[in-house]
Amino acid sequence: MSAGFHKIFWGFLLVFLKIHIVNVDILPDPLGYFLIFQGIKILLMDGSGDGKRAKWIAAGLIFLSIPSVFMWNNAGEQPAMLVQLYGTALSLLKLVLVFHVFRMVLEIAIRHGQSELKKRVASTFNTYMAVLLPVTIAESFLMNMSGDWLTAVSIVLIIAAVVMEIVFLVLLRALMKHPWEIAEA
């Protein structure tokens, strides 16, 4: 069980971190989604039904995120709009993936009789979705703003998104370190 959460944690960490050298992301998202896919496969061997959708979404994101490895040169209005649409689509698909990962984790916590863990996962899930869904939707409206409003709204959205991603990673780290074998006995 811990091995599955280990892969999922490192996969989401790779997707979260963006380090570019020249025009290439040295921590590629497809590798992160591959690790998430592998982690979900391990957890599915434990019998989690909700993870099947998460597994297929992660598999799709492996291929759909390949262009994100390269920074695109936004010369002109049309390519910039396409890049923004692509980025928004990836963000929405990642949000759907996280939704299904949370459901899978809730099912595992319930099946193992971990009521405190279930409460923590449910609380984090509700907060994550309440913050990230509006942030992801608001991103597509930023192109219609200008000046000080654009800067202020962008900063608030970025801070909210980063904080929630870190909260999610902390939860995954706790799941990775959780004594599952002891809990099952």
Results as ranks from 00 to 15, higher is better:
Leu171Met: 13
Ser115Asp: 07
Thr136Ala: 13
His178Lys: 11
Leu142Gly: 04
Val135Thr: 06
Gly47Arg: 03
Ile8Met: 14
Pro30Val: 13
Asp29Ala: 09
Lys55Tyr: 09
Ser68Met: 06
Gly76Cys: 04
Ile159Ala: 15
Ile166Thr: 05
Ser65Thr: 13
Leu82Ala: 13
Gly51Val: 06
Ile40Thr: 08
Thr127Leu: 14
Phe125Gln: 01
Gly76Glu: 10
Ile40Tyr: 00
Gly4Trp: 07
Asn23Lys: 01
Trp72Asp: 06
Val167Lys: 03
Glu77Val: 04
Asp148Ala: 15
Asn23Glu: 04
Glu181Tyr: 15
Asn144Glu: 10
Pro30His: 07
Leu90Asp: 03
Leu93Thr: 07
Leu27Arg: 07
Arg173Gly: 13
Leu106Ser: 07
Ile108Trp: 01
Ser115Met: 05
Phe99Gln: 01
Asp50Lys: 13
Ala80Ile: 12
Ser48Trp: 07
Phe99Lys: 00
Phe9Ala: 13
Ile62Met: 09
Ala109Trp: 01
Leu13Ile: 12
Gly47Val: 05
Thr124Ser: 06
Val101Thr: 15
Tyr33Ser: 01
Phe99Val: 04
Leu31Lys: 05
Ser68Ile: 04
Asn144Ser: 13
Val153Thr: 12
Asp29Met: 10
Phe5Leu: 14
Ala185Gly: 12
Met1Gln: 14
Trp56His: 10
Gly87Asn: 10
Lys55Asn: 04
Gly32Ala: 12
Pro179Asn: 15
Leu169Ser: 09
Val167Cys: 02
Pro179Thr: 15
Thr88Trp: 13
Phe34Arg: 03
Arg111Trp: 08
Tyr33Asp: 02
Arg120Val: 03
Gln84Tyr: 03
Ala122Trp: 02
Phe34Gly: 01
Ser140Cys: 03
Leu90Gly: 04
Gly51Ser: 08
Leu175Phe: 07
Leu64Pro: 00
Gly39Trp: 05
Gly87Ala: 03
Thr88Gly: 08
Val83Tyr: 11
Leu95Lys: 01
Phe141Thr: 09
Ile110Cys: 00
Gly76Thr: 03
Leu61Glu: 13
Pro179Asp: 15
Leu92Cys: 02
Leu61Val: 07
Ala80Val: 10
Leu64Val: 10
Gly11Thr: 12
Thr88Ser: 11
Gln114Ala: 10
Ser146Thr: 12
Leu133Lys: 01
Ser65Arg: 13
Ile137Tyr: 08
Asp148Asn: 13
Lys41Cys: 04
Ala58Asp: 01
Phe9Ile: 09
Ile26Asp: 06
Gln114His: 02
Phe5Pro: 15
Ala185His: 15
Ala161Trp: 14
